[in-house]
Design a protein around this nucleic acid. Structure first.
Length: 272
DNA sequence: ACCTCGTCCTGGTTGC
DNA sequence: TGCAACCAGGACGAGG
């Protein structure tokens, strides 16, 4: 499940091969990818666009064109790029022929991913309505984080998954950050003490940075555009480790369901 | 305004 | 061994 570190890994690997390149021919196979726009219409619009930059905001990948338009890609669960790519790739949903003769392929087993072509003036408003602070930027202060959590009765795990509170954290990094900050996932977000919020902010930034340094985590499906795997899964302290001893205290890691998501934590280190 | 739950989707795993 | 039920979850909209 691509979260901020995985998307950042994809971004940094796509960047050198895409910047300056022109989309010569675009084929979109999966009609769901561009909903509600028609895939053929989007493919036609993309043809001739030249890539100026490849950016990221939260879990969104932003292919910025010289025209000022942007292709906003969300990989959701199993979306991914392969570049360069040959003819055959399983679950291919789209392909872009670039002006250097290489092919950028896009695959998505579960077809949740989306491609959205935005006009120059549309991007900021689109993102502003959906995601909050970028956790690795200096503007993501403890005060700002505290404001985003204030008054919320939802469990902190659920609040971390809310992209408007903090952009880019998903199920895996939420559990890892809460373990590091010694906070119980069911703790009501609005009841966290200022010290706990500061600790959680540090933990979120730490696990995301570590994730980027490890090129993300590869569980089942995730592969980076070069076909490589991340190694962050070897750093997991709780995610997917139900029954194993906590690295800090030896207590078996527990699994519960929070906000509809599998949630792992140490029942001894992480008290409500 | 806030929160929870159902929906989308496929393939790997589990259980009978 | 075969097959069906279950499970994984990011974002979004409906409903409480």
């Amino acid at each position: 499940m691509p979260e901020l570190p995985e998307v950042e890994t994809v971004r940094s690997q796509l960047e050198p091969g895409l910047v300056g390149r022109t989309f010569e021919r675009v084929e979109i196979v999966d009609g769901r990818l561009t909903r509600p726009e028609s895939p053929d219409a989007v493919a036609a619009e993309l043809q001739g666009e030249r890539v100026e930059a490849v950016r990221r905001r939260g879990k969104y990948l932003i292919v910025a064109f010289a025209s000022g338009r942007t292709l906003l890609v969300h990989l959701r669960m199993t979306g991914g790029f392969q570049h360069p790519s040959g003819e055959s790739t399983a679950h291919r949903r789209a392909a872009v022929l670039l002006d250097d003769g290489t092919t950028l392929a896009y695959t998505d087993v579960r077809r949740f991913g989306t491609w959205l072509l935005l006009e120059p003036e549309e991007l900021d408003a689109y993102l502003a309505a959906r995601i909050g602070g970028e956790p690795l930027e200096s503007a993501f202060t403890t005060a700002r984080f505290a404001r985003a959590l204030a008054g919320r009765r939802a469990p902190i795990k659920g609040a971390l998954l809310d992209q408007r509170a903090v952009a880019g954290v998903g199920n895996i990094y939420a559990d890892e950050a809460l373990w590091r900050a010694r906070i119980h996932p069911l703790q009501p977000a609005g009841e966290l003490e200022p010290d706990a919020i500061a600790e959680l902010r540090r933990a979120v930034r730490k696990v995301l940075r570590l994730g980027i340094a490890r090129s993300g985590a590869t569980l089942r499906d995730y592969r980076d555009p070069n076909g490589g795997s991340g190694s962050m899964q070897h750093e997991f302290m709780v995610y997917g480790r139900g029954g194993e001893p906590c690295e800090r205290c030896g207590t078996p890691i527990a699994k519960i369901r929070v906000a509809g998501r599998g949630t792992w934590f140490c029942p001894s280190c992480q008290q409500v």
